[in-house]
């Protein structure tokens, strides 16, 4: 079983990396972009013996204060069917 933690910067936190990416997109003449925010995806291989609720609880515990820093970031978690993922 695969867990996925999506970490994103809070809206109110300045994202200079995202701004740099947005400028890069503009330089590539990819118009229509109003802004970019860069986050991260953390994939966690989970013990297949875990049930869904336990797996989600584990991912949230991992995210809260470690995979994500709540001062800067928010997160969401999901479980991915490995057979269906590339």
């Amino acid at each position: 079983m695969l867990g996925r933690v999506l970490v994103t910067l809070k809206r109110e936190v300045l994202d200079p990396q995202g701004d740099a990416v947005a400028r890069g997109l503009a330089a590539l003449d990819l118009s229509g972009v109003r802004g970019v925010r860069v986050g991260k995806v953390i994939e966690v291989s989970l013990d297949p013996g875990l049930d869904r609720d336990a797996a989600l609880a584990l991912l949230n515990a991992a995210a809260d204060g470690f995979l994500a820093n709540p001062v800067l970031e928010t997160w969401s978690v999901e479980l991915v069917d490995e057979a269906a993922s590339p």
Binding site: D15, Q17, A20, N69, V71, L72
Partner: peptide
């Protein structure tokens, strides 16, 4: 120290990158 919560807040990327 901030990551350990021994001091508040966080330190992140310089505004100008």
């Amino acid at each position: 120290l901030t990551e350990s919560k021994m001091l508040p807040g966080a330190l992140t990327r310089n505004a100008h990158q």
